[in-house]
Design a protein around this nucleic acid. Sequence first.
DNA 1: ACCCGGGGCGCC
DNA 2: TGGGCGCCCCGGGT
Length: 441
Amino acid sequence: MIVEQLESPTAVYCGMMKYNGVPMDKELMLTRQQEADKKISDIRTAIDSITGGVDIGANASTAAFKKYLYTTLRLPVMKMTEKNQQAANDAAMQMLKEWCENNKPEYVKLFELVQDYRKWGKLKSTYIDGYLSHINETTGCIHPEFMPLGTETGRFAVRNPNLQTCPRKTNDPIGVRNFIKASEGNVLMSLDFSQIELRVGAFYCRDKKMLETYRNGGDIHAQTTSVIYNVPFEVAVDKNAPDYKEHRTIAKNCNFGVFYGLFPKGLQQTLKFKAGLDTSLDRCREIIANLKAGYPGLTKWQEQTKKRAQITCYAETWLGRRRYLPGMLSDDWGRHSFAERCALNTPIQGTAADILKAACARIVAGLPDRMWLKPLLQIHDELVFELPIDKLDEAVEFVKACMEQQPYPEFDVPIVAEAAIGLRFGNMTEWEDFIREREQI
DNA sequence: ACCCGGGGCGCC
DNA sequence: TGGGCGCCCCGGGT
């Protein structure tokens, strides 16, 4: 198969999603809107009582607020933005908070409030007000625009609104995903590729340990734990082992970053601000070194891939989707390094996207016989549908088969798609649990 | 009434 | 100094 053969059926699939629309619970949204308004105004009052009423705008990103921090309060600038301005993002707030704990404890509360203020502001402006403004009055649905060739790598892009960035439970006190509610008599069904990018990575780099792990239906995060901490696999999967949780968190973060040229400093930052783990730079260096040594195939593939891109000046997915990388010719270290990371990332992210497009093509082919199955969303490694409750078993079987089919003859890593069912997108149950519950009734 | 870049942040 | 997006706000411009 060549990549061009995927595009036409995928475009059809996009049209279906836009036409069907995502059913929204407008009443719930209006309730949450009021709650958010109150929350935001409370936080703002608390902030004003500390700052004396500095203009912080809708998300504490005004010039006046920065001036207040760095000029009025004379706080140290701990972080710069990409364009070399004084940063005031969440990481900066956290560092300022820690600094104030030792130096100006009366301002610690301010940074906690600002972090909260931003979260609620984002929820309201993007996910409540934003989504509300996109509800079609006739259908009661949101009809986002899906662009099958909207990215450099072959992934979809989505806009008006971008429903691919719907907040997850862990980062959402109000349940935005619950705004999406199946219409009367229907359910939502979501099928999710399990670790598709890592599997594609294993396919590319041919690393023995990685391939073996997936072929045995194994736990790649445990395998990585075993590799970076140099402990037997049995210890890595032992939930009672010391530091099990911390080791697994670090292993996960390594797995997500490692194929794309993760640097020790990047790993350190990710662990600090995303996982709340303080890890020294040396420790991160050591972890990455262990990872490279433990997955020798991975390291070799990275070197070969960079070398090839240096000659061809493009990166390519397995089915031949190409991304040109003029940065490979640049003398500028930053530009060249960026092009190298693209050369590592594109085959993996792009091939994973191609695999999902191949699944979309098979689904499109089967839809005329299943007019009750309505595609609603694509979220990179996940497909969401709406369907009548009594068609559930048939639907899971059909879509799962479409997704798990071998994408092209050379692909020799198992592909797993996991199903989840629910009346609301924020409250989905894994298919196995759903069956168990149903049998008990 | 727009446009635009920068910063910031949501998701995979 | 992992990659891929789009949306919101701000501040400056036409």
